[in-house]
Simulated scan of single mutants.
Amino acid sequence: MLTHLHTLSGHQNPIYALSDGLDPNTFYSAGNDKGVVEWSLERMAFVKVLVPVQSSVYALHRFENLLFIAQRSGVITVFDTVENVIRATLSFHKRAVFDLKTIAHKQELISTGEDGNVAVWSLKDYSLLYNFNVINDTLRVIAVSNDETEVALGCKDGVIRIYNSSDFAFQRQFTGHKMPVTSLQYAPMGTFLVSGGRDAQLKFWNLPGYELQNQVGAHMFSIYGIAFHPSAPYFATCSQDKSIKLWSSEDLKLYKILSLEKRTEGHFHSINKLMWSKDGRYLISTGDDRQVMIWRFQS
């Protein structure tokens, strides 16, 4: 179902972030290096350093032709991938920014990170529209519901907090994990939210009420990524335990483990991020070993 196709090297330090490109054959990676790198899936090769940055990059997020680059310094760089220019520099967070998401119908960008604050930015003129404090500690991840009506925040205290996207009014909270929430994703079918934590657990929350539906001891250490296949009923997870796992999104059956310990190809250090190509043909993973690995998917 997943077989190793290619390993891309070139980064000199750990990699924390991936993003797809406007071109379906292009994707981006970034981390402790001083630049965002563009890669070609068509040629399985390095293309160029897209844009230099001043500090480590913890998140990348693309919306249309704009690539948002979240940095350890708290700065968010807005880069136009068509014109190849920096459109704006967003400054509000005083500490590292860990995640970025857009609410397309409102033309808004949401950011959060180590300062425990959420900032809401206009995609029209890049102004700061609104900000609020959630906790006095790290907010690691953001997930936006499929209909864009709700925003879920995964917090260091193990709590998942839900806000209404129309006015960011608080709606509910529930204890998701015994340790920090490190990954969060709404299922494409719109029936549940899945969370992963430093406690190595995956938890599945029914929608719309967010009742705990199921939980799985999925990994040995922190779960850093959850990615649903764009068309097939599967999702992948990655972990600090250096493994990637492929699951059924219908019955949560475990189909595949990719790990050096299981004598497959794999990463030799923490896997920090993974994503699917737009056409679902490839899974892309990266982490502390400075490698970007491409896996071919066949159902």
Rank of each mutant, 00 (worst) to 15 (best):
L2M: 09
T3W: 02
L5T: 12
H6D: 03
H6S: 12
S9L: 10
G10H: 12
Q12F: 11
N13K: 10
P14F: 05
I15T: 12
G21W: 01
F27C: 02
F27W: 07
D33P: 09
K34W: 06
V37S: 09
E38S: 15
W39R: 11
L50W: 09
V53Y: 06
S55C: 13
V57T: 14
A59T: 05
A59M: 05
H61D: 04
F63Q: 03
L66R: 12
L67P: 02
L67F: 08
Q71Y: 04
R72H: 13
G74F: 08
G74C: 07
I76Q: 01
T77Y: 06
V78S: 01
V78D: 01
T81G: 00
I86A: 09
R87E: 07
L90F: 08
A96C: 07
F98K: 01
L100E: 03
E108K: 01
I110P: 10
I110W: 06
G113M: 04
N117G: 04
N117E: 07
N117P: 00
V118Q: 09
L123Y: 09
L123T: 03
L129W: 12
L129D: 13
N131V: 07
F132D: 06
N133V: 06
N136F: 08
N136H: 12
R140P: 08
V141Q: 03
I142R: 02
I142G: 01
I142Q: 01
T149C: 02
T149Q: 10
A152W: 00
L153P: 05
G154T: 09
I160M: 14
R161E: 02
I162E: 13
S166L: 12
F170A: 12
Q173F: 01
T175F: 06
T175I: 09
T175N: 11
V181H: 08
Q185E: 13
P188I: 10
P188N: 10
G190I: 13
G190K: 15
G196F: 15
G196A: 11
G197I: 15
Q201M: 15
K203P: 13
P208I: 12
G209Q: 12
G209F: 10
Y210E: 02
Q213P: 11
A218S: 11
A218I: 04
I223E: 14
H229N: 00
P230F: 11
S231Y: 04
S231Q: 07
P233Y: 01
C238L: 09
S239G: 02
S243M: 12
S243P: 02
K245C: 01
S248N: 00
S248Y: 00
S249F: 03
L252H: 02
L252S: 06
L252Q: 05
S259L: 05
E261Q: 12
E261K: 11
T264Y: 07
E265V: 00
G266R: 13
S270R: 14
N272H: 09
K273L: 08
S285I: 04
S285N: 10
R296H: 15
S299D: 09
